[in-house]
Design a protein around this nucleic acid. Structure first.
Length: 293
DNA sequence: TGCCAGGGGTTCA
DNA sequence: TGAACCCCTGGC
């Protein structure tokens, strides 16, 4: 990994495979803020960073060389060659269009507990509301990190932090509605060590999914998202209403069921299905593919 | 102005 | 298999 470090900034070359807008607006993360200068300020791993493009370079501000090496290389998946992934997925058709459109997407390696709770909140919900609920939880129950560019930033609460709060308070404060109990129960199970998100990282993907789905609020789709965004399972293909519509519209040609879509994705995208999903999701949502049906 | 549908799914009958 | 679910925004 070639990079330059100066004045709390990391600078490295962008090989047409890193675009902060694509990375953060493709639906995998919720704790970012788009600044007036088009850069993205992001909270993760108890840090606040700002990511932007400067000509052919990616610039990460407000960080150290040590954090870059120990946190951000893995977080941004910088040791994975996305151009190689694109080449392998290349199909001279739909997916090529999607990969061209979202060329700078990278699949982040995010924190397990935060990802778990975030996607429990995402069920039958809308992105602005999801983001808001997560911000409220962080501001109220997380730790203050710092003020950056005039805004206070807080870490996502720990399982212990959330386990301490009553279900009613979670609901009332963070506006998560019927998801309140799910958040509370999962936080309690984890803080009491009755469920361990860390040991699951050595499980096979099948078993990992099964285990995650034993938690309240986690069904097939949420489990898949957690696997793809926090457990480095690039073969996982989460199927939500958007990707269902995109697959039906662009690949299958008729309305069908989730099971068949999963099988279809596995057949054509193989162990890179998760990457394909991100390109297709971003492309589909930004262009309203299938929405008029 | 006010009403009403619907949303990155999951759960419970 | 299908309805219900919190809350809130956008469309009429």
């Amino acid at each position: 990994m070639n990079y330059k470090y100066q004045n709390n900034k990391i600078i490295f070359k962008n090989n047409n495979d890193f675009n902060p807008e694509h990375v953060f607006e493709c639906g995998q993360a919720f704790r970012w803020r788009k600044e007036d200068d088009e850069s993205y300020t992001v909270v993760a791993f108890g840090r606040v960073i700002n990511v932007s493009l400067d000509k052919d370079n990616v610039v990460i501000k407000n960080t150290s060389e040590e954090d870059f090496n120990s946190i951000w290389i893995n977080y941004f998946d910088l040791n994975t060659d996305y151009n190689e992934i694109k080449n392998k997925l290349s199909d001279n058709g739909t997916l090529n269009k999607a990969m061209k459109f979202g060329y700078g997407i990278r699949i982040l390696n995010q924190e397990k507990f935060e990802t778990t709770i975030s996607f429990i909140i995402s069920a039958n919900n809308q992105i602005p509301r999801i983001k808001k609920s997560i911000e409220i939880l962080s501001e109220n129950y997380g730790k203050f990190i710092e003020n950056y560019n005039g805004v206070d930033y807080f870490s996502f609460p720990t399982p212990e932090d959330l386990a301490k709060i009553s279900v009613e308070e979670i609901r009332e404060v963070s506006r998560v509605g019927f998801r309140d109990k799910r958040i509370s129960e999962v936080s309690n199970l984890i803080s009491k060590k009755e469920f361990d998100l860390e040991v699951l990282k050595d499980y096979s993907s099948d078993n990992l999914k099964k285990e995650l789905m034993t938690l309240p609020g986690i069904g097939p789709k949420v489990a898949s998202c957690i696997m793809l965004f926090a457990y480095d399972r690039g073969e996982t293909f989460p199927i939500d209403v958007w990707i269902k519509r995109v697959m039906e519209e662009l690949y299958i040609g008729e309305e069908t069921n989730i099971k068949l879509i999963g099988k279809y994705a596995e057949d054509i995208f193989g162990d890179l299905a998760g990457y394909a999903q991100q390109y297709l999701f971003y492309y589909g949502r930004e262009n309203d593919i299938g929405k008029t049906k």
